[in-house]
Each structure stands twice: as structure tokens, then as C-alpha cells.
């Protein structure tokens, strides 16, 4: 794909743009990079308070890890989710926000979207590192699964990149896209087992029986790619077990599919960006 060879030739640029994003984001703040941890921390506190203490959601005990801590269980899916939304939200703004650059200089436009993804990935990695420390402290045997975690993180990056390539172009033509997506994310968040366990949906689905033909509620529910990502990350980090093979294959398929579609659309429109902006 041309987008890949283009990016190979401009590794420097992607690296420097990523550095610009990372460095520029928390310039002139006292806490600096620590702020990137504040968001997930605040979300964790709020969700734990609401869903664990008030609504009393009780996720299954980690199997085989035996962990039973709501906040940790929550973070295992919440961090990947917020990474995903950060990449897509930032990616959508990356072309529109760099209008000046695009109109004046020639360089591979995809570098902007890719670098945005990398800078979010960097933030996410620090969050995951903190989570890792917490997991080790509370006694999760996560270390052997670490290589696979990194692979799945890369798969999620690819998926998020594909979506943000697609939406960044859409946002150039229709600026509504970003507002629309913001609302979509709110719904999507609750359609994904982040603050509640997926088993709640399976139970409800079993009680309801097939909706039409042999399609159950759970089948529809599992069409959501982020549901699979959430399960896979929880399997690895919280339960310390091998995820279902089919889940792994499905997320890879989603990632490849999103990247191909995103890259095709992006390549088709990138030449016209300077005049469309």
C-alpha cells in the first residue's frame, strides 16, 4: 500500500511530529506528563464509586488469577477504551488543525494522523505501565502475558489508526463529524463491557432466546469490535489466561479491515486536501 511506503520514507517526520504532540501537550503545566494519568484516575474513581459502591456490580473473580478488585478490573478495559477514543478524536482534528501546514508544505499527509496515534500510544503506554505496577502489587501473574499484551496493544493501535484515517477525511468535508462522533462514543462506551461485565449481557440474552432466526442479543452485542478488545485485555491482564483464539482473530480482522478501508479512503482524498480545507 502506498501509504505504508510513504510512511517508511518519512519516519523522521512522524517521530518529530509525535514529539511535538507529546512535548507540546503539557508545556507550561506544573505536573506535566503526570496530567495524562489524571484523566483515567478520575474516571476510575467516579466509575468505581457509581458502579461498585452504589450499583453494586460484581464482576467475576479473575480466573485463574483470583483477583477481586473492581477498580483494577475496570482499568483493564477502561485504559484501552480511552486510548481508542483519544486516537480517533485527535486524528479527526489532526488534518483540520494543521490546515496551515497542509496548504503550504508538501509532505505525506498521513504522517499527521499516524503521529497523533503514536502520541496517544505513548500516553497510553505510561498508563499501562502504571497499571502493570498496580497489577503486580495486587498479585496478578501478568508478566508471562506481557508480550501478548504488547501485540494486542499494537492491534488496537492499527484498528484506531484505520478508523481515524477514515474519519479525519470525513471531518475535512463535514465538520459535523467530530460532534457526531463525540455522541457516538458516549453510546459506544455503554455498549462495551467496561463498567459492567459482559456476562450480564450473555445472561440477559440467554433468558430472551433468539431475537430472529438464530440470532441472539449476544451475537449482535459481540459485533462491537471494542467488546472483543475489552475481553481480550481483561483475559490477559486481570484473569491471566489465554484469550479465546476466535477473539484474537476477530480483532486482527477488524484492525486489518479498518486500516485497509481507512488507507484507501485517505489515499484517494489526500491529494485534494490542500484545496478542500
Amino acid at each position: 500500500m502506498s501509504i505504508l511506503s510513504e510512511l517508511r520514507d518519512s519516519r523522521e517526520l512522524v517521530a518529530n511530529l509525535t514529539r511535538r504532540e507529546v512535548k507540546g501537550k503539557y508545556k507550561r503545566t506544573v505536573l506535566g506528563q503526570l496530567w495524562s494519568l489524571a484523566n483515567p484516575l478520575a474516571a476510575m474513581l467516579v466509575y468505581t464509586l457509581v458502579f461498585s459502591f452504589i450499583i453494586k456490580i460484581e464482576p467475576d473473580v479473575g480466573d485463574p488469577s483470583g483477583l477481586d478488585i473492581f477498580a483494577v478490573w475496570l482499568l483493564c478495559a477502561l485504559l484501552p477504551w480511552s486510548f481508542f477514543t483519544n486516537v480517533v478524536t485527535g486524528g479527526m482534528a489532526s488534518l483540520v488543525g494543521n490546515e496551515n501546514l497542509i496548504k503550504k508544505v508538501y509532505f505525506p499527509r498521513s504522517a499527521l494522523v499516524v503521529a497523533n496515534g503514536f502520541s496517544a500510544f505513548f500516553t497510553w503506554s505510561t498508563e499501562m505501565a502504571v497499571l502493570l505496577v498496580v497489577l503486580l502489587v495486587v498479585g496478578s501473574a501478568v508478566l508471562p502475558w506481557l508480550p501478548l499484551v504488547v501485540v494486542v496493544m499494537a492491534v488496537l493501535y492499527v484498528f484506531a489508526l484505520g478508523i481515524s484515517l477514515l474519519l479525519s477525511i470525513a471531518n475535512v468535508y463535514f465538520r459535523d463529524t467530530q460532534h457526531f462522533v463525540a455522541i457516538l462514543f458516549q453510546i459506544w462506551f455503554y455498549a462495551t463491557p467496561i463498567v459492567y461485565p459482559g456476562t450480564l449481557v450473555s445472561e440477559r440474552s440467554d433468558r430472551m432466546g433468539p431475537l430472529f432466526g438464530s440470532v441472539t442479543l449476544e451475537d449482535l452485542y459481540r459485533l462491537n469490535p471494542m467488546e472483543r478488545f475489552a475481553e481480550v485485555f481483561r483475559n490477559l491482564l486481570y484473569d491471566n489466561r489465554m484469550p479465546e483464539l476466535v477473539d484474537l482473530l476477530v480483532i486482527i480482522a477488524w484492525a486489518v479491515g479498518a486500516l485497509v478501508v481507512g488507507a484507501l479512503v485517505f489515499t484517494r482524498h489526500s491529494k485534494r486536501l490542500a484545496e478542500a480545507l
Binding site: 518519512s10 523522521e12 517526520l13 517521530a15 518529530n16 511530529l17 514529539r19 511535538r20 512535548k23 501546514l101 508544505v105 509532505f107
Partner: peptide, 13 residues
């Protein structure tokens, strides 16, 4: 930092 950034946008290694 900006010199490095700008030069790489212009295609320098």
C-alpha cells in the same frame, strides 16, 4: 525543537 521538526517536514533526515 522547531528546527528539527520543520526540517523533517521539509524532508531532511
Amino acid at each position: 525543537d522547531n528546527v528539527y521538526l520543520n526540517a523533517s517536514i521539509l524532508g531532511m533526515k
